[in-house]
Amino acid sequence: MKLRKTAAVAIAVLALTATACGGESGTAGDKPKDPTGGKEAPKLPTYTVAKDVKIDSPALKKAQKAGKITFGAKNDQPYLGFEDTDGKRSGFDIEIAKMVAADLGFSADQITFKTVDSGVRETTISKGDIDLYVGTYTINDERKKQVGFAGPYFMAGADLLVRKDEKAITGADSLKGKKVCSIVGSTPLQEIKKPKYGAETVELSKYSECVQQLINNEVDAVTTDDAILKGYAAQRPTKLKVLGKPFTKEPYGIGMSKGDKALRDAVSDALEAHIKNGDYKKAYDATLGLSGSEFTEPPALERY
């Protein structure tokens, strides 16, 4: 009897979840707040898809043959790289991906986005699991040994996200003995681990999980690039704030296979063109700009 009951309950729960289709449409959770204060929200730019692109890059040729290009991206960074419950991606990095793809001859629906967490970025890029990577990816020498970078297309800086009522932490120099959360394999984490800060570090695999730890009072601050942090603060304006005192420079690049110079140049060209024709600023205003960061001119491209 008991056995039957267990089985019945188990099957009932399974059936409930299995038939749980339908339901309200639209994004789950709160409606995004409108930080523009009633003004009309800036619109996303549209990009013209280039035709007959001929670039001597093995990765690109393969993508052209397949008729689709694969971008690695983050899925939990509001206004940068975010995926809502309907699977729709949005954010500044996503726009960068679209404009680059357009110049390489791929329309927006020929892009396949794959969520790649920070910890496995180098592996997926260097092994060719994705063609290009846009996900708040800081260019540095250590990484250049493993992957190629086009850009930088944006200059961020490591900053601190704290609770709204935080008084003790005023900047990176007041972190002594505080618990700071960041994610495995990120550059601000390497920085904050240096003994001069004297901070205790907690490493998780996603920034959003760090943010949750901060809200739960489990850690005292979250450190990573200001652009990412501002997105989280804008999502939860009653609970969190960004200090606004960046203490490193984090130039974002587009990651790709290391030896592919032709592709690197083509991506750099695409970035340059879109910065010049104003698409870049439009994309910024319609994404990152909404989190309250001022527009700044992009840094000069580094070609190598």
Binding site: A28, D84, S208, E209, Q212, Q235, R236
Partner: peptide, 14 residues
């Protein structure tokens, strides 16, 4: 995990 991270309700994650 993705859903818990990305959905915001009452300024908190579910």
């Amino acid at each position: 995990r993705t859903m818990a991270n990305n959905i915001i309700v009452n300024d908190d994650n579910p």
